[in-house]
């Protein structure tokens, strides 16, 4: 992993891998043009997991897509691993993604794996594209499959023959083979059952500890709270609050964050009661 101080890409601890400054994204043209993200600034350091929490329409997936160069930013700056990628052309983005510095995991593992490719082929493909030899690529695929606690037997299977949890772990392994400095995860555990969710979350924690920078995007405060060091709360296209996970949950400042925390079901019942939530909802509507 590039977190190894001896590795060539290592740039010292705590240096931001992702720096987003005043990011603005618009969708639509002319009179249909509307702002989806506004003034979004966020930095993520090596060995840090930052959760981006937001509900439907908050702009959280747009944020992921902007950072991956899949949508065009109308203002602001994005730096990845020290490189200013803001004005990159399609070709430059493709080259950057091909280098594997930044990788991404989306919710639906079935759609991120080619259904007709054996798991092994899926895993080594990004390495072959980079020009790594087949033997070396296969060795790395095996190494990272073990890293996500999957058996080597799976290498010969097709994605359709795996369970949802296994598929999502294969997707994570596929992301890891290029040894990225930054991984963007958009709802990575939302489709999984309890046992698989725990496993994937633990893998993410281990990755963080090995020095990778993670952006964990989700609508589910619960799963983000479990692994994030810091949490940024997106509401109507703006980050309304960013702080240590513990602070966001125990001392939320923005009204929306308070409602969010007060609404999230926990075993000890939500942090707010019905009347408390009603009061917050009323304030949010003003």
């Amino acid at each position: 992993m590039s977190a190894d101080p001896a590795a060539p890409g290592y740039a010292g601890p705590g240096r931001p891998v992702l720096e987003v400054t005043d990011l603005e994204v618009h969708y639509g043209l002319r009179r249909r043009r509307r702002r989806v993200l506004q003034g979004v600034s966020l930095s993520v350091a090596r060995g840090e997991t930052v959760g981006v929490i937001g509900e439907t329409g908050s702009g959280k997936s747009t944020f992921a897509r902007a950072v991956l160069g899949l949508v065009h930013a109308s203002a602001g700056r994005i730096r990845i691993d020290g490189e200013d990628v803001t004005g990159y052309s399609h070709r430059q983005w493709r080259a950057l993604r091909r280098r594997g510095v930044v990788q991404y995991v989306f919710q639906d593992p079935l759609r991120s794996l080619d259904p007709d490719l054996a798991i092994e082929e899926s895993l080594i493909e990004p390495l072959l594209v980079q020009g790594v030899g087949r033997a070396e690529a296969v060795a790395r695929a095996r190494r990272y499959l073990a890293r996500v606690h999957l058996d080597e037997d799976l290498l010969r299977r097709l994605p359709g023959e795996l369970s949802g949890g296994q598929r999502q772990r294969v997707t994570v392994a596929r992301v890891l083979v290029t040894e990225p400095a930054l991984i963007i995860l958009d709802e990575p555990v939302s489709g999984l059952d309890s046992a698989n969710r725990v496993q994937v979350l633990q893998i993410l924690k281990d990755l963080r500890d090995s020095g990778v920078a993670l952006v964990f995007i989700s609508h589910d405060l619960g799963s983000v709270a479990g692994v994030a060091d810091r949490i940024a709360v997106l509401y109507e296209g703006e980050i309304v609050e960013v702080a240590a996970a513990r602070t966001v949950i125990n001392a939320p400042r923005h009204v929306y964050t308070r409602l969010l925390v007060g609404s999230a079901p926990t075993l000890r019942s939500a942090a707010a009661d019905r009347a408390g939530r009603d009061a917050l909802r009323a304030r949010l509507r003003v």
Partner: peptide
């Protein structure tokens, strides 16, 4: 297992 998931990886961890 269901309870652990909330206590180790969920909001309950903080609350």
């Amino acid at each position: 297992l269901l309870i652990d998931e909330h206590e180790q990886y969920g909001l309950d961890r903080f609350l």
